[in-house]
Nucleic acid binder design. Structure first.
Lengths: 338, 338
DNA sequence: TTGTAGGCGTTATCAC
DNA sequence: GTGATAACGCCTACAA
């Protein structure tokens, strides 16, 4: 019912191999035959069977997205970016969540890669920070691109933002508004992004000569609930911080929640800055000042690095570092008079 | 390097076909051979190659998720539910967004299905409401499950909530609080969910004998921005509505935004109810009363219907109708005194 | 520049 | 019950 390479070969009066050469753009092929075969291909509406190719090549035309991520907005953004890059190609996207804490995680991924013979995978933070995982991909003969908050790998397999810089700038912005008592809701232990963001935060304070009291730095795990909890601790301090930087938007939303529960006005009594610029940032009230992670572009670039779109070597595909930008919204104001 | 069916056959002293029978749980097979072969399989850690199976069977071990959805939270929830169902099976999830408005949509999907030879697909609303699409899946020999707000297909290929009922209950709740001027932010034209929810809304009003003034029903497109716009129109009415039901949470967040911009207090001046119970509902301030769509369970069930988990015939897999529940949070209060 | 033979790892057919 | 043999549709080596 569906045309195969044999049908094309027969009708074009050539061998299967020649058709194969046309499909795979082999350079050693006369223009005449190429054209003749191509005509038949078009007439028949022939499309090579991916299953057969996968078997013959030992490689599937699938791109995997491997993640273990507490932030759903980010996962979706990445999917969107990858799909944009894959659009119009023969590749499809396979989603594979894993459990970072499971001792079987590496074995699971290995089994997955070896079974499915993926063409390549995109690794999302925080699991992208796991060097053993990257090594495993390589061993399994699977290309990979890691996404992260700092360069953890060679540029051809890495797409990175500079969180340290971005948070430094965000903190400087708070300082410029007059804030001196600035609380931090840090991300979870073991996350590179959490570390980078804290370093940026501390760097800004140090440069401004601000010496933070004990207890102004607290930790969350990138969830709303943890932001809520952390904010309660911070708001119990005396004197209270006049501004809080949360390491991601979800926790920032939690901070806002906690502040409201205490009857504080935002930004009059407390300024808040988040990180990521996910949808929630613009949708809560007041709109949240935050750092925009160019997630779509990063994911797009990650996918392009895998499938190697030769079409735009100087285009977005070649980029490895992506700067983040501060987005100023209504959640920041000068501190209240004392 | 990796064991194949031939290795197993040789070591077990049987033919390939016999090994194949063991893998596929063929009933006509002596227990003795089955056991012998199974031992070798375990020793070698043999796993059948999915690419080869796909070629031989003309069918891939992939489940597709086809969607064109304005609501990212929902897409993620569905992915989660499907992946839960697929966990521990040989199936993988392939994500395929499509453009509802493109004239080439159906052809694209057909090409996708015929090329990839998916085992089955889950269709998300609103595209799941497209009967031509369902027919196309069938023609392509691809199983499917549709998710939706009402039964649009036979129970074995449908997973449905009862939005009409749920919204009726939610509206009755507002009425019971004393509200009489209740605004509606309807979903977009052509969405079955929008229609069902409006019908439920109107039914509750009719039963309570409330005759809504013109202009209290307005339309959005399920986005935050459209909720904002619609709320502005509603709040311009005189007399102003004392409560607003928005057909999804994102629009409800927009309503809240618009109300705040006018300096209204929620819920003192205006009560708001949303629909979906996505993450944003609990994270905005005040927390949003909403209708919980059991999306994880529905998606789980949709996947089970595809892969036919015989393990739990009476379990969640068999279910086709899923009731929604009202979630009461702080965004609703009695109307202000006049 | 093109064609032939053989293989990728599995399942289906049909004898034994 | 079990096993040769031939698909499945494509690709690589090697030969011409």
């Amino acid at each position: 019912m569906k045309a195969t390479i044999n049908d094309v070969a027969r009708l074009a009066g050539v061998s299967k191999k020649t058709v194969s050469r046309v499909i795979n753009r082999s350079p050693l092929l006369s223009d005449a035959t190429r054209e003749r075969v191509q005509t038949v291909i078009d007439e028949l509406g022939y499309v090579p069977n991916p299953q057969a190719r996968a078997l013959a090549l030992g490689r599937n035309f699938l791109i995997g997205l491997i993640h273990d991520n507490p932030n759903s907005q980010m996962v979706l953004g990445v999917q969107q970016g990858i799909l944009d890059a894959l659009h119009g190609t023969d590749f499809e996207l396979v989603v594979r969540p894993v459990d970072r804490r499971s001792p079987a995680m590496l074995d699971d991924v290995r089994a997955f890669l070896e079974r499915q013979r993926l063409f390549g995978v995109v690794l999302l933070p925080p699991i992208s920070e796991n060097d053993a995982l990257a090594r495993l991909c390589e061993e399994s003969g699977c290309r990979y691109t890691r996404m992260g908050s700092a360069m953890l790998d060679t540029p051809d397999r890495m797409v990175a933002s500079d969180d340290q810089d971005a948070v430094k700038a965000a903190t400087e912005y708070l300082i410029a508004q007059g804030h001196r008592r600035i609380g931090l809701v840090e991300g979870p232990q073991g996350f590179r992004s959490a570390k980078e963001r804290r370093i940026g935060f501390e760097a800004a304070l140090a440069e401004a000569g601000i010496d933070l009291p004990k207890g102004y730095m607290t930790q969350g795990d990138y969830t709303f609930a943890s932001g809520l909890e952390a904010a309660r601790r911070l708001l119990d301090r005396s004197p209270r911080p006049t501004a809080i930087f949360a390491s991601n938007d979800e926790m920032a939303a939690g901070v806002l929640h906690a502040a409201r529960q205490r009857g504080l006005s935002i930004p009059e009594d407390l300024s808040i800055v988040g990180f990521d610029d996910t949808a929630i940032a613009a949708h809560i009230w007041p709109p949240l000042s935050t750092v925009r992670w160019p997630i779509l572009q990063m994911a797009y670039s990650a996918a392009v690095k895998l499938i190697g779109d030769a079409g735009d070597d100087d285009g977005p595909g070649k980029q490895s570092r992506f700067p983040s930008a501060l987005v100023r919204r209504a959640s920041v104001a000068p501190p209240p008079q004392e």
